[in-house]
Design a protein around this nucleic acid. Structure first.
Lengths: 231, 231
DNA sequence: CATTTAAACTGAGTCATACTCATTATACGA
DNA sequence: TCGTATAATGAGTATGACTCAGTTTAAATG
């Protein structure tokens, strides 16, 4: 029965977790510096100040260690995203917040994101964390539908791919050209998505939103931005 | 001066190219079956019916061999895409054709596409082929603008990321769920892009805001963002 | 506090495999 | 037919992931 939870690692359980986390830290550092293939377990062990064999007490193999690093990264990102989103804001605003946060984060930590691709085919444990993260988008959309801010028939799953696919490819393009964060990417993406996401109940039959719709969406975005600026 | 081009490989040049191509064939087969890490050079050499050392006469190392496989794949894809597109069709039609072709191809050859991610950070030679492929999209867009089918101010580069990012993420989602090609993805993507891409002069019944109006609004948004960014 | 027992840790050794290079085979020109 | 250059070979080397018998450390017990 755990009577207290001291801040200093005292119990053996805590000491183990501290060591595991320090191995993860070392692995993240070495992986992002040298890439997966370039990283040596020996270096990671040395950085974490443990013997090589100790690494294998915590992780079955190099792939598993990578999965740990990548999983932790996406879990961190999930926490950050939840902080970046205003709980009471409208769905479109929340999407905007998520898009900014996402683009910023994957630009800043591009190397770790790249490592994700090295993990995917193998283990699936880290995919869980990615799934959790992606679920934030789904939550925003479903809430928006619930609150009648978004039409009922939006293909959430497909828009999810538009959202994250566009942002990730845009990030790659920026990296390739050595360009910094570009707000217009988020703006344009949301303008695009705004079309199929706008409530627009008057023209429920018409498949093609008009320029007026576009205009309306753009103006709403501007208004939101204006109010967002005052925070 | 080459007098004739016999079908049977006769000249030493031709024999070399045939051998290189057979090594690439073997590598593609083994890589897609076993993945990059799982593939052994010994197996590839055996499949190509050459000695292990011979592989290294044609490719500096395993990464370089992968770059060869991936580069050839994207070159093939470029040829196929050019065939799939009707030269005289409208820009929107051509985008539709490219989108279908692209989604189909990357679904069918998902393993090779995945290998692309293993090659990217390393060599850049294969990136050239990818660049060539992507250029097809740019050509369609620029031709559309030239022919006044698309408005002047379309951010081609950003839409490119929307286009390929969405399609690739959609393909991953389909693969993950073991679902086949889904035409609605292409339809929805083009409907989305159609908004910012359509000239849409036929339905100018109501006093539609002009693209200049849209542009002005967009610019005001951008300016606001710019000033917000400098804080 | 001494002793037992279990858990955590170590690093020298094993093994798989990418890559090398001295040797051999082949093709081609004279 | 011979000489030379080019291509091919595969046994050998180097590297680095992973193992495991032995050692240290910590907890449990009396």
């Amino acid at each position: 029965m755990p009577a207290s939870q001291p801040d200093v690692p005292n119990t053996s359980r805590q000491r183990l977790e501290a060591k595991e986390s320090s191995i993860l830290d070392a692995a993240e550092q070495v992986f992002t510096r040298a890439g997966f293939d370039g990283a040596k377990i020996a270096t990671i062990a040395q950085t974490a100040a443990v013997a090589e064999g100790t690494v294998y007490l915590y992780y079955r193999n190099k792939q598993d260690l990578l999965a740990g690093v990548v999983g932790r990264f996406w879990a961190r990102l999930t926490l950050g995203a939840e902080e970046a989103i205003t709980p009471e804001a409208s769905a479109v605003t929340q999407l905007d917040q998520l898009a900014r946060y996402h683009l910023r984060s994957i630009l800043e930590q591009f190397e770790v994101v790249s490592l994700t691709y090295r993990a995917r085919p193998q283990q699936e444990r880290d995919l869980d964390q990615v799934r959790d993260y992606v679920r934030i988008f789904d939550r925003i959309m479903l809430r928006g539908i619930d609150r009648k801010e978004l039409p009922d028939g939006v293909p959430v799953s497909q828009l999810r791919d538009v959202f994250f696919g566009t942002l990730e490819f845009s990030a790659r393009t920026l990296k390739l050209r050595n360009q910094p964060y570009d707000q217009s990417i988020v703006t344009n993406l949301l303008a695009l998505m705004g079309q199929s996401v706008a409530v627009d109940k008057s023209v429920s039959v018409a498949p093609e939103p008009s320029n007026s719709d576009l205009m309306r969406t753009l103006q709403s975005i501007r208004d939101q931005l204006k109010s967002a600026k005052t925070d």
